[in-house]
Write a protein that binds this DNA or RNA. Structure first.
Length: 279
DNA sequence: ATGCCGCGACTCTCGCGA
């Protein structure tokens, strides 16, 4: 079985490239992030014509995650238990906005996680919050989001033979060698110790990050910014990963970062990461 | 060539992203 994860940065703008990736890699399952569309805008028909079932959650032009599968798509969950929501909290000196915020009991849960059972594997497509800036409300949201996911993922891994794969855009740079120049990120998100700790905590929950296990090379990037010729200069980041339970990890034969997909007109800023699993 | 940011929308500018 071949499973991949890819942040497409707008599915509608990259539908042809997405269908091309499915065909080129002969994928059984694709976990998609940043579809940037609502459910009713999702091009379901194009996936069906290609032989895939699809599950999607998208609430607005932001976020949006999906799973496409040709090996079954069962027990779809459009969020994980305990997934926190996000809404900017108004400053105390803004009376009108502050009273509005008080009326909002629970901030809305964003479309950043979808799970489905595909060919016996519980697959999650995850788009971890960016964080925006150290100390920002969004940064605290990011840490809570990761902690809550880790807590529930520990339960999913309780059965010794549980087959769970947490795939996606983690928005964390775990190692200094996962970025072209870590000094450029000093004081910014993605490299802070709390973020790195929150990422590494999945190991304590019984998971293995299989993409590094199979692609241990330094500076093996999965993302290059659109700006400042980042790709031609190979100034990238490694932020797309797959944490799996042992029963999945032992099945992984190869992992490939599809660097070619970043080339040419109309590329996403992320590239697919493909996992080949033994039957 | 891999080339100077791209996408979506309450579009003619802004929010968001890493």
């Amino acid at each position: 079985m071949r499973i991949a994860t890819w942040n497409v940065n707008s599915l509608r703008a990259r539908l042809d490239r997405t269908l091309g990736v499915l065909e080129r890699w002969d994928l059984d399952v694709l976990a998609i992030q940043e579809t940037k569309c609502r459910d009713e805008q999702f091009p379901v028909g194009a996936f069906q014509e290609a032989g895939y079932e699809v599950a999607h959650t998208g609430l607005s032009q932001w976020n949006g995650v999906a799973i496409a599968s040709r090996v079954g798509l069962e027990d779809v969950a459009t969020s994980f238990p305990g997934q926190p929501g996000f809404a900017k909290v108004a400053k105390a000196d803004d009376d009108a906005a502050a009273s509005d915020a008080l009326l909002e009991v629970e901030p809305p849960v964003e479309a950043r996680a979808i799970g489905a059972t595909c060919g016996g594997v519980r697959v999650w497509s995850l788009y971890v919050p960016h964080g925006r800036a150290l100390g920002d409300q969004h940064y605290e949201y990011k840490l809570t989001w990761l902690r809550n996911l880790r807590d529930v993922a520990r339960n999913w891994a309780a059965e010794p033979d549980a087959q769970v794969a947490l795939l996606g855009d983690w928005n964390v740079i775990p190692l200094d060698t996962d970025v072209y120049d870590v000094a450029d990120f000093a004081g910014h998100t993605h490299v802070s110790q709390p973020e790195r700790d929150a990422f590494a905590a999945f190991a304590e929950a019984g998971y293995t990050e299989v993409t590094r296990e199979h692609v241990p090379a330094e500076h093996a990037y999965t993302y290059w910014d659109y700006q400042r010729l980042a790709f031609p200069k190979n100034r990238g980041l490694r932020i797309d990963f797959g944490w799996t339970t042992p029963a999945v990890a032992e099945r992984v034969r190869t992992v490939t970062i599809d660097r070619e997909e970043r080339k040419g007109k109309g590329a996403s800023d992320h590239v697919p990461v493909i996992l080949e699993l033994a039957d």
